[in-house]
Design a protein around this nucleic acid. Structure first.
Lengths: 128, 128
DNA sequence: CCTTGACTTTGAGCGCGCTCAAAGTTGTAC
DNA sequence: GTACAACTTTGAGCGCGCTCAAAGTCAAGG
């Protein structure tokens, strides 16, 4: 997370104006850091900036917004669960394809002796 | 996956020029569909278009590029594994925060009787 | 014959999330 | 005193991945 990004987050309302040193430089408190860590965690799991900004805004209002904030988090968590499923599917697919590539490479390495072992060839996928 | 997107993919080299009907309309074969499904799967797991195009290009060359293609898939698979870990962490964090919100909402619902139960309050996080 | 609608092309436009350029201020080291 | 580095501001620019607008072609239906 770069300084550029932190300033950008402040501009778009993800971070409230933060404390300054005498010289005007930003000073991030532990609470700021905790919040930024949370933001980072949400971004890393593809929560849109808009939604994070909405959440930050509600947070400023106080406890009365608790339910709406919880709903935002629950929605995002559901999205995360879906993402995990998708990733696991892709992971499995890749395991399969990589094994297939290894078989192809094996076939090349032993210089295509396979005419009397056609079933090995048939197991290879037609598509990259 | 929209028609727009399919044409875009063809433009940028993810899909080879595909068969046409008499009238010039695109006709996607089963092999095309399988390939497109694979592309979709990689995109859904955040493989950049560039990398997919690289892979598609190698695929056109033939078996000699097998190793490089396998390496691309292995790299992506590693990225997927890392993503899953990140998502699982975030999922756990959200479970925690959501539970915390439920506690806050409970506290509001019973109209803050908590002065003689301060430990409940202390369990609540200071940060949204 | 003529309309309708689904496709075709090319090139431009857009939303997102940064990322950087330019110019200015401040504190530190020599 | 003065160079330098590290921050500050504002606004612009950029890479990605679509997404759409405009104008054209073609086939089928009424």
């Amino acid at each position: 997370m770069t300084a550029h990004t932190l300033r950008y987050y402040e501009r778009v309302g993800l971070i409230q104006p933060v404390g300054r040193a005498r010289n005007g430089h930003r000073r991030y408190s532990d609470a700021d850091e905790a919040w930024i860590h949370f933001l980072h965690c949400m971004r890393a799991t593809s929560m849109p900036i808009r939604e994070m900004a909405r959440y930050a805004e509600l947070r400023e209002v106080g406890d009365a917004t608790s339910e709406e904030r919880r709903k935002i988090l629950e929605d995002h968590q559901a999205g995360i669960a879906a993402q995990i499923v998708e990733l696991q599917r892709a992971h499995a697919l890749l395991t399969h394809k990589i094994a297939n590539y290894k078989a192809i490479e094996q076939r090349i390495r032993i210089d295509r002796p396979a005419l009397h072992e056609p079933e090995v060839v048939r197991e290879l996928e037609p598509v990259g």
